[in-house]
Simulated scan of single mutants.
Amino acid sequence: MTTGPNVYIEIDGRPATELDPELIPVLQSGYGHFTAMQVRDGRARGLALHLERLDASTREMFDAPLDGDHVRALVRRALGMAGRRDASVRIAVYWVPEAAEPTQVVTVREPQTMPEQPRSLMSVPFQRPLAHLKHAGGIGQPYYGRAAVRAGFDDALLTGPNGVISEGSITNVAFWDGTSVVWPDAPALCGITMALLEPLLSSVRREVTLADLGSYAAAFLTNSQGFAPVHRIDSTVFAVDEKLMRRVREAYATVPWDAI
């Protein structure tokens, strides 16, 4: 089913036009989880991590495993039906009461890459509930993301009590102290790009607060679309460290693309 320009959706391997009416309230409930990946030539970076995320979240939310080989088959089918080898793919998992297995929704869109121009972030007093899950529900992220854009920023930076920094609204954030890449030690989703980059860079995890920002030389964001430098958080301005960004770019380039 094409639901908009260049968007194709399948539910359990069938076009969304064949949607079972029993699924409508389940999909509308927002009680589900998902992963998002960029596919190039039928391959994705960190595929095993995506499948592990889906399985772990399904076990936690629905007390059942998720077959990774079946997920891959569904994605291959949707890519084929959409006529795409390069795409943005989202796999969402829901559960119909009394069903024998989870419902999987695969959405295929045009491929995307995060623009590498420096980003600005507005801190907001919000942390995602159950932050370790990439869950489908919640109004906080889009609400604060839109508020940040209205205020002249590119996106929101989520923070907790005492200004503890967690993550961006749809990104992970990292800071450079001149020696190490610092990933905030706070409730946040461990994004796949973050998980791939962390062991390849000189990384540490520790608490980072808004009050600490002036002690860092640079910052950058990561998500499924890639990475980009940060040039401002609230009134704190960061220089774009080209050497650091080159290291990030080179490290990311070594990550293999896994066949779906």
Rank of each mutant, 00 (worst) to 15 (best):
L213V: 04
W95Y: 12
V164H: 03
P102F: 10
V124Y: 10
A239D: 15
I9S: 05
P125C: 01
W183Q: 01
T254Q: 11
I91F: 05
H70P: 00
H50L: 03
N172C: 08
L79S: 07
G68E: 14
R90N: 11
L210R: 12
A92Y: 07
P25N: 15
A239T: 13
S180H: 13
G13P: 10
A64D: 07
A92F: 09
K243I: 03
I11Q: 06
R45H: 08
K243H: 13
A228D: 04
Y144N: 01
A16P: 00
E10F: 02
E18S: 08
T254Y: 04
S202Y: 05
P199A: 14
A218T: 03
E198R: 15
R119S: 07
P115N: 13
I9H: 05
G191M: 04
N6P: 00
S169L: 08
A151M: 09
M194A: 04
Y144E: 06
E18W: 01
R77A: 07
T35F: 03
H33A: 02
A251Q: 08
L213I: 03
S224L: 10
P15F: 03
D12C: 13
G83M: 11
W257V: 02
N172G: 02
V89Q: 10
A219K: 04
P115H: 14
Y94F: 15
I9F: 03
V164Q: 12
E167P: 00
L197Y: 06
A228W: 02
A251P: 10
L213S: 05
R119F: 07
R249H: 08
A218V: 06
L210V: 01
S203H: 09
Y143V: 00
M122G: 01
A16M: 09
R45P: 04
Q117G: 01
T103I: 03
V105C: 05
D154V: 01
P5F: 12
D69V: 14
A99D: 11
G42Q: 11
Y94C: 05
T3Y: 11
D86N: 15
A131C: 09
Y252H: 09
A211W: 10
G163H: 08
L196Q: 14
P65H: 13
R77K: 15
E10T: 13
E98H: 12
H231G: 01
I170Q: 08
P256A: 10
P111H: 04
A239N: 09
E250F: 00
M37N: 05
T58I: 05
D185M: 10
G32C: 09
L19W: 07
V93A: 09
V124C: 09
H132P: 07
I260E: 03
F126I: 08
K134A: 06
V240I: 07
A218I: 08
L23T: 01
L244C: 13
S235H: 11
P118H: 11
R76L: 12
L189C: 05
G152A: 12
R128G: 04
P5A: 14
V173C: 07
M61H: 07
W95H: 14
D12M: 12
L200N: 00
D258L: 02
L51V: 04
L201E: 09
R128K: 14
